[in-house]
Amino acid sequence: MEFLTMNNLTYGYPGTAPVVDGVQFTIKKGEFHCLLGKSGCGKTTLLKLAAGLLQPDQGSIRLNNKTVTEPSPEAGFVFQSPTLLEWKTVLENVLLPVSLHRKPTEKDQERAAMLLEMIGLSAHQNRYPTQLSGGQQSRVALARALIQKPSMLFLDEPFAALDAITREELQEDLLKICHLQNTTVLFITHDIAEAVYLSDHVAVMEKGRIIYQEKVELEKPRTLKIRYGSYFNRFCLTLRQIMSEGNP
């Protein structure tokens, strides 16, 4: 069943080549998709279009059989930077999507506590974002995106600024949580290994178009060993060549 469909999506600024150029893309329920591309290829714009933060010039987006014209309450978004509110505690930040619209209930509190437990930040719930490390801040941002149990999650290079080991830990957390909740994910990155490791499907974007799509045939759950297996590395190499040559 198709969950997210982008149909002939085009977006651009007058007088220049379109940033997103006729993109055709579908994601099925519960799948994890990565969109890979060099910076400036239009991947962030595509993600914002999909999330309803931008309006396409042409084409349409459907999420769960509804046309997207504005941000959907079903979707969560994780930005490049953690975008935590410095004046709120970790717990308050996680609860922000709820507290903006109503008073958090006992159940919301429980869910926030559960998410913090999962990302290993229970002990820090009353601290402030500036007192946390970069990795911890990204974790809080992830928990905040998940508090309302979104069926669709958009992530825009959320781990780009982290060191390799922390990034791997966060990738594990993300996979675990998404698997538990059967979340459909569209993940943007420029890191080839990250894309292959995380996703069920990898797509490569260049100059506003999707130039390559392939299913990743790796066992689940992912293990550390996978990262060093021959299939994984061959896959990465293929993607690397596609990205540098600009055509498959």
Partner: peptide
């Protein structure tokens, strides 16, 4: 990005 976050949160 924080403004976009708030838009996302409706």
């Amino acid at each position: 990005q924080k403004l976009e976050l708030f838009r996302m949160l409706k």
